[in-house]
Design a binder for these strands. Structure first.
Lengths: 181, 181
DNA sequence: GTCTATATAATGATAGAC
DNA sequence: GTCTATCATTATATAGAC
């Protein structure tokens, strides 16, 4: 089992139950690896795992979303790609956001917390750049990018709280629609 | 120290760090009470505390928001009152939502989880009823109420992740503005 | 109703063999 | 790189005095 495969399991565990609720024994059971194997891959223990998951999520978003948004291409296609990836990442509205789950866990260490929180800022910046590329003024681009993230994240929270995942898909569609120039 | 005072401390601890990250020792330190005193007030232990906090939050929202929204009064004033209370409750965008923090903690017990999650549904319903009282069709009232909660909750998440609490106040104002009939 | 002292289980983490 | 066995610590929870 490669380290990245372990990290993907950790990603799912941490975002679903929160960093503190997941024990090394849980991770051992979920991966099928013994505790010592886990400490071999992550010498720093649980905080090390938190950092690896945060880096993984950050890298994934950069490759799949940020680079795509700031690269060449038409805005409508960029927005479609972002919506498709985001919907899959959040399980159509049923899977929690890692940022939200890890933000409240100081025991995960400041590095991991800073990394996950920075994902949100980078996301807004990348989206803002895609809008500026369409000729939108910088301030309006930032406002609209922020509003989109607000709608996406809020849709996820409300969908999961109410148990109605259609709320997420509706919010995501609405957020995308408002982004078209 | 009365039980409700303890619950208010628990409310703050649980929403800020999450249920699992808060130990009985933490609670003892925050309240100044010994462990045995805490178990005297909450014989069921930590899950009992989670249930009490969930009930407290549910009752607080009912008294301060739901009853107000579904009672007599003009819509603009209702919305102003809701905005003022919500902004204070969420620390102007700096304090996490208990619902979000407790939703991901299965160890808190199903009762507490169900209670906090139901707050979101009741909130949407109360807001929808206030809109229907202004003559809005039921389906549109529900859609707009849901959209408002999406914007409020999303504003809180994005504000806390980015560290820019003005995002929350902007989202809250926007949500309220969209609710006026 | 609060305290001190303690029981018991689970936690994160390590040692050393293979 | 993974395992078994184990350590030290912390967790939840309880007993019993006051």
């Amino acid at each position: 089992m490669t380290r990245e495969e372990i990290v993907m399991v950790l990603f799912d565990l941490f975002r679903r139950a929160g960093y503190d609720a997941v024990s090394i024994a849980d991770i051992s059971a979920a991966t099928g690896l013994g505790k010592s194997s886990l400490y071999h891959h992550f010498p720093g223990g649980k905080p090390d795992m938190a950092g690896a998951v945060a880096d993984f999520a950050s890298g994934l978003m950069r490759v799949k979303v940020f680079d795509m948004l700031t690269g060449d291409g038409a805005l409508p296609q960029k927005l479609r790609d972002m919506a498709a990836f985001v919907s899959e990442m959040y399980g159509g509205g049923g899977a929690p956001c890692l940022i939200s789950s890890m933000m409240i866990s100081p025991t995960a260490g400041p590095k991991a917390i800073d990394t996950v929180r920075s994902i949100m800022t980078e996301w807004i910046n990348a989206l803002g750049q895609a809008l500026r590329a369409q000729g939108l003024p910088a301030d309006e681009a930032k406002q609209r990018a922020t509003a989109a993230l607000v709608e996406i994240q809020g849709g996820l929270v409300v969908a999961r709280a109410t148990g109605d995942i259609t709320i997420f898909e509706t919010a995501l569609k609405s957020a995308i629609a408002r982004l078209h120039v």
